[in-house]
Design a protein around this nucleic acid. Sequence first.
DNA 1: GCATCGGTTCAAAAAATAATGAAACATCAG
DNA 2: CTGATGTTTCATTATTTTTTGAACCGATGC
Lengths: 173, 173
Amino acid sequence: MKPPSEKSAGRRPSAPSFPPLQPAELELADFFVRMAGILGVPRSVAEIYALLYISPEALDFDHIQGRLGISKGSVSQGLKFLRDHEMVLSVKHPGSRRPRWQPTPSLAASLVALLRSQVLPALERAQPSLQRVLTEAEARGADAAVIERLNRLSRWNSRALELAPLLLPPPVP
Amino acid sequence: MKPPSEKSAGRRPSAPSFPPLQPAELELADFFVRMAGILGVPRSVAEIYALLYISPEALDFDHIQGRLGISKGSVSQGLKFLRDHEMVLSVKHPGSRRPRWQPTPSLAASLVALLRSQVLPALERAQPSLQRVLTEAEARGADAAVIERLNRLSRWNSRALELAPLLLPPPVP
DNA sequence: GCATCGGTTCAAAAAATAATGAAACATCAG
DNA sequence: CTGATGTTTCATTATTTTTTGAACCGATGC
């Protein structure tokens, strides 16, 4: 399916004056990249998260870019993604205009938010479709076993939809 | 992240003598494709599953290829994937040499098998890494908060590993 | 044997996704 | 206002993943 191309071990050049990732940092990044891969989150995003996760201090934009050796665009988009999913927080250091970033306290909550954003929309979009398919099948007097299958699927989906908001309460924006 | 290219709505030409997917079938296929997409399962695989799911009869290789209008290679690989993940069963119709395929009775079980195969290996590979990262951090007297984070992560991971076989019992092959 | 059926494999082509970086934009300080 | 700073946008490029199809392989029947 997706044997996620291992070879990217070769380090990219870091921007001037920022040290590249150290072995332990690399290893953690690797872990996050792999996990993120399961849900199709791009590596640059996972790397940013890993870096913030292992850093004692909140880091600003340039630090992130410099240490990971990735482009401005990637950092910007990566942070946007992480922000949107409530996986990072900005702290405003006094004396500097640039926000610094750190992971939100609860990784669990972050994962929940992420799943939520991935799965829920799919379930929602599916609901009317499944309904239609089912009705159509019944209308044309389709095979009983098939109708039963479709029924189960549709019930599943709507139950999941009902439950979702309870288990994964949406943030109050 | 992955706005899964909608445009593939244009139907591919079906092989001679097999009708293309009907609207209801298309709609169901769409649903499965979307769901599969979340876990990075390729569309051809999802389409095959959807077709079997909505068909009253088990279908053979040529039927699948013909109705979906995809290549032999894709059908072969797709069926292999579905077999490997215990999502389809072959029934041998008497009088014909070719196996016919149908979905396994429990979609839930299938999903579990799929998740299992995706998540478990990642957790396993991660365990020693996380351990190393943690030890290293402690050894060099890293920031206490970071050590705490890493600890939690590592504990999480190993707990998940312990639990996994209980929740998702491996098949007896 | 050897020809045909049923598929599988795998290198090459096509499609999808992610990363880059220059230009555009927004905000703040003066 | 105006210039500098800090970030976002987005067309282009690079990378990765998926699909294709022809060559190949292993039955099975003759």
